[in-house]
């Protein structure tokens, strides 16, 4: 079966720094794929290249077989993206953002109105009907971002740090939606540096370290009987992992 997302030898160098170094990953259809790594390991850069938001120096990415760079329209209609920390049409309300993007995606006016209504109510954003996106809290921004990603009924979701700065109640809502999406046959790639979360949600894991894939496979294959956190520290931790204490804080 064609993978939902196939990354082949993606590379990116910024100036002197090699951010992503020949990364290969395959996300099977129907899987919930967690991409883990330290801050600056290259997760965001990899995902940006995979969905066509950043031009790679080498390699390619395919979404359900459609090449992101040679067939952008085909590839991008199948994927919903939640980037980390990017701006949105800030002077619109949540409903207006969804209406705008739905129409942009070529959906009919009626379908857009229907889906926007449902998304806003499920994500509990319908109370902030008059609030502009620029006035949203960080958690609300993540939720409207997820709504944007889901609006055109994609078959693959690519989510960069979807749970960062989200309160526990909203996080539970988002988890429920994501599990439902996978149960309905969709595929998800999410990046995170919270191991417990990935263990809880994902069935596949890829570990990225210093721009390379350190391990990839099903959750069981990668952690092999240990906790994901121990495996992760074992894979990416430096030889000298003795945690240092701050001298003036210990009495």
């Amino acid at each position: 079966m064609t993978p939902a997302l196939e990354i082949i030898g993606l590379s990116k160098t910024f100036g002197e720094k090699v951010a992503v170094d020949h990364v290969d990953l395959a996300v099977p259809q129907g899987s919930f794929y967690g991409l883990v790594g330290q801050n600056g390991a290259g997760k965001t850069t990899t995902l940006s290249m995979a969905v066509g938001l950043l031009r790679p120096d080498g390699g390619s990415a395919r979404i359900f077989g459609a090449d992101v760079w040679s067939d952008p329209s085909g590839a991008k209609s199948l994927v919903g993206v939640l980037p980390d920390g990017m701006a949105m049409p800030e002077r619109l309300t949540g409903r207006e953002v969804l209406t705008y993007l739905g129409l942009l995606r070529g959906l009919s006016k009626e379908i857009v109105a229907e889906r926007a209504e449902e998304l806003l109510s499920v994500l509990e954003l319908d109370e902030a009907e008059k609030t502009l996106v620029i006035e949203y809290s960080t958690g609300m921004r993540k939720k409207i971002g997820l709504a944007i990603a889901l609006l055109h009924a994609p078959r693959l979701l690519v989510l960069d740090e979807p749970f960062e700065a989200v309160d526990p109640v909203s996080a539970a809502t988002i988890k429920t939606i994501l599990r439902g999406f996978v149960a309905g046959g969709g595929s998800i790639v999410l990046s995170s540096h919270v191991m417990a979360l990935v263990e809880q949600l994902c069935d596949h894991v890829g570990v990225i370290d210093k721009g390379r894939v350190a391990a990839a496979g099903t959750l069981e294959q990668v952690r092999g009987g240990r906790s994901l956190e121990d495996t992760f520290v074992g894979l990416v931790g430096s030889a000298d992992t003795g945690t240092k204490e701050l001298s003036w804080l210990s009495r």
């Binding site: 066509g52 329209s73 920390g85 990017m86 049409p89 800030e90 993007l101």
Partner: peptide
């Protein structure tokens, strides 16, 4: 002035 909101335009190439 729209900053990185450009990503949405890039995700919908036909618009």
């Amino acid at each position: 002035v729209d900053g990185t909101a450009l990503w949405l335009t890039l995700m919908v190439p036909a618009a």
